[in-house]
Design a protein around this nucleic acid. Structure first.
Length: 265
DNA sequence: ATGACTCCCAGTGGGAGA
C-alpha cells in the first residue's frame, strides 16, 4: 500500500501533473493508493472531480477561494470522511480525513505562521493545539493511523539548508518544533527518519533565488505513522524529480510504502 | 537587500506563501 502527500500550490495549475504522476506511479506496478493534497486553492464548485474519477480515484475535498484547500484521493472508497478539525471553529480549509483500506488517513495543511511575532503565529499554535487533541482522539478509535501533509515546520536542523540563518525564523522556532514533538509523543513516528536518507533532503524549495538548483530547501512535508502502523512501513521517500517539472509546485511529494496489514481474525 | 518567483484576485498592483 502506497500513501502520499503533496502540496500542489494550485490544483488548477497542477492537475495535469497530478494525473501524469498518478499514472507514472501506477506504471511502476505500485500505484498510489491514497494521496492527500494541500493548497488546492479551489472552491468545491470548481474542484476537478470528474477528471480525478476518470483517472480511477475517488475523492473527497474541502476548499475555499484563493487560499488553502485540501483533498483526499483514494483508489478504494474513503469512509467516515471529516473536513477540518471537529470542534475547532476555522474559516480556513486545512484538514481532510478518511479511512482507506483500514488505515485512518489524515491530510493536513498546517498554517504558515508568517512570523513568530504575528497574529498568524498565534493562530498556528492554537490550530496545532486543536489538531493535537483531535489526533489523540482519532488514535483511540483508529490505531492504524497516518497523519501527513504540509506541516510548515522543519523538525530539526538537519531539515534546514542553512540552520544558522534560519534559527528562530518561521518553521524553525522552538515553539513550532515543540508542537511537532507533541505530535510524536502521541505515539507517532516520522516515517522518513525510519530509514537512512540522503543528506540535505528537502521537500520544499523557494521559487526564488535559484533555490532548487542550489538545493536550498527545507523538509516541511511529513508523514507520521502510528505505532500500530510502523511495523508495516517499508520505505519513505521524497519524490524530488517532481520539482524539476515544467511549472513545478514549490513542494515535492512525499511517499510512504506499507506492507500488508495483519491478517484478520 | 525588507529582493529575486509563483499563484491568486484583481484590474495595470498587492497579499501570501515559506
Amino acid at each position: 500500500m502506497k500513501l502520499a502527500t503533496w502540496n500542489v500550490n494550485s490544483l488548477a495549475v497542477r492537475l495535469p501533473q497530478l494525473l501524469d504522476w498518478l499514472a507514472a506511479q501506477a506504471a511502476t506496478g505500485s500505484p498510489v493508493d491514497a494521496v492527500v493534497l494541500q493548497e488546492t486553492k479551489l472552491v468545491d464548485e470548481k474542484f476537478p472531480q470528474a477528471e480525478i474519477e476518470a483517472a480511477g480515484y475517488r475523492v473527497v475535498f474541502h476548499g475555499q477561494k484563493t487560499y488553502n484547500g485540501v483533498a483526499l484521493l483514494s483508489r478504494g472508497a474513503a469512509t467516515d470522511a471529516v473536513k477540518n478539525i471537529p470542534g475547532f471553529d476555522d474559516g480556513q480549509a486545512r484538514v481532510i480525513a478518511g479511512t482507506v483500506d483500514g488505515v485512518r488517513v489524515i491530510g493536513a495543511y498546517f498554517p504558515n505562521g508568517q512570523a513568530p511575532d504575528s497574529d498568524k503565529f498565534v493562530y498556528k499554535m492554537r490550530w496545532q493545539d486543536a489538531l493535537h487533541d483531535w489526533v489523540r482522539d482519532e488514535l483511540a478509535h483508529h490505531p492504524q493511523l497516518v497523519l501527513m501533509g504540509d506541516f510548515n515546520v522543519a523538525p530539526e536542523d538537519r531539515d534546514v539548508y542553512d540552520p544558522v540563518a534560519w534559527a528562530g525564523q518561521i518553521h524553525c522556532t522552538p515553539e513550532e518544533r515543540a508542537q511537532f514533538q507533541r505530535l510524536l509523543a502521541l505515539g507517532l513516528v516520522d516515517a522518513f527518519r525510519l530509514f537512512e536518507q540522503p543528506p540535505k533532503s528537502w521537500s520544499w524549495w523557494d521559487y526564488r533565488n535559484l533555490a532548487f538548483r542550489r538545493n536550498q530547501g527545507l523538509r516541511i512535508d511529513h508523514i507520521l505513522v502510528s505505532a500500530a502502523l510502523q511495523p508495516r512501513v517499508q520505505a519513505c521517500v521524497i519524490d524530488k524529480p517532481m520539482r524539476k517539472n515544467e511549472r513545478p509546485s514549490d513542494h515535492a511529494p512525499v511517499i510512504v510504502t506499507l506492507g500488508a496489514g495483519p491478517a484478520a481474525g
